[in-house]
Simulated scan of single mutants.
Amino acid sequence: MKILTKITIGLAAASLLLVGCNGSKTQTATDSQAHVKPIIDESHLGYRGTTDLLKEDVIPPAVAYGSAAPGTSKKIARAYQDAPPMIPHDTTGMLPITQDNNQCLMCHMPDMAASMGATPIPVSHFTNFRPKTTVKGDEILKNGKVIVNTSSETLKNVSINVDKSEQHLYAGRFNCTQCHAPQAINTLVDQNSFKPTYTSKDGAHKSSWNQSKWLKDINTDK
């Protein structure tokens, strides 16, 4: 009888202990959940200004670009070192650019840029970095000479065609807006907090791309 009583008392004590522990955990979880607040709701998931993300007839804000005339605008800092510069001025009537109609050249050719207050086109845009390559049977020819299938830049018979007088833009560079684009002036829904670290002192407005073995005698830092 005494043994049975002890067992009963022991089970009762264990039950109370378990209930106390579970109650404590439940209370802690409840308190924790009470302090959790939503950081982002649906209205922040897009720039259409609606919480109905599946609605199809919502018209997004119109994209607006700078209207400053060429020569009167302020240069836009590059997003990162050697990034293609953004176009800071109005491009109305200048697009689309074609090989036969490129109004960018009127101000940005090196011999005109200084007097127009424009950024001059760099020598890299007057350079063909693609030696003429053909295949004859099982052989690869560059500039008409057979070469080993390698990308080594020490090959003496692989030449790069450079217009050192900077008179003729390389045909592969005619479409300026393929890399350079106007900058929208809309207010961002989510602000950009990226801060570039430039590798050169004037990296915000100038390229740091310099010579390599390919360009041993070419000043590309202009």
Rank of each mutant, 00 (worst) to 15 (best):
G49S: 01
K132H: 14
A34N: 07
L95V: 08
F174V: 09
K75Q: 12
R78P: 11
A204G: 03
K213D: 12
R173N: 14
K132Q: 13
T30R: 09
I97W: 03
A64T: 15
T8P: 03
A69I: 09
M106F: 15
R130G: 15
Y170T: 07
D90C: 03
M106C: 14
G137A: 00
L4E: 08
L105C: 05
D52V: 11
K206S: 10
S15A: 10
L11P: 01
L16A: 08
K195P: 14
A77I: 02
T177C: 04
P131C: 02
I121D: 00
P96L: 00
S208L: 08
K145F: 07
D163P: 01
C179L: 02
R173H: 15
P182N: 03
L169W: 02
K2L: 15
V189W: 12
N186G: 03
S73W: 06
Q99P: 11
A114L: 00
K136F: 06
I147N: 01
N101G: 14
E166L: 08
P96D: 00
M86T: 10
K222G: 15
N102W: 09
T51I: 08
R173C: 12
D90I: 07
V162C: 02
A68V: 10
T177V: 01
F174A: 06
P38F: 05
A79W: 07
T5A: 12
G23S: 04
P61D: 12
D111Y: 10
E139H: 01
T30H: 06
A64Y: 14
C107P: 00
L17Q: 06
I140M: 02
N101C: 12
A64M: 13
A29R: 14
A14S: 11
D202C: 04
I121V: 08
K195A: 10
P84V: 05
N157V: 10
P182L: 08
K2I: 15
I160D: 03
F126L: 01
T119R: 03
K222C: 15
I185V: 03
K156G: 11
S43H: 13
S159W: 09
K201F: 10
L16P: 03
Q99M: 13
S193T: 15
P38Y: 04
V189E: 09
H180D: 00
L54W: 14
S124Q: 03
Y198G: 00
K145H: 07
P120L: 08
L4D: 12
T28W: 11
T92H: 11
G20H: 11
K142S: 02
A34V: 13
A14D: 06
E56Y: 14
R173M: 15
P182M: 04
I147G: 00
I59D: 09
K136R: 13
G23P: 01
Y198Q: 06
T8K: 14
T91D: 13
K216T: 09
Q27G: 15
T127S: 05
I140P: 03
C107G: 01
V123F: 13
S207H: 05
Q99D: 12
K132R: 08
L155V: 13
L18P: 09
I39S: 09
K206A: 07
A77N: 05
E42V: 15
A204L: 06
T5W: 09
K2A: 14
G117Y: 02
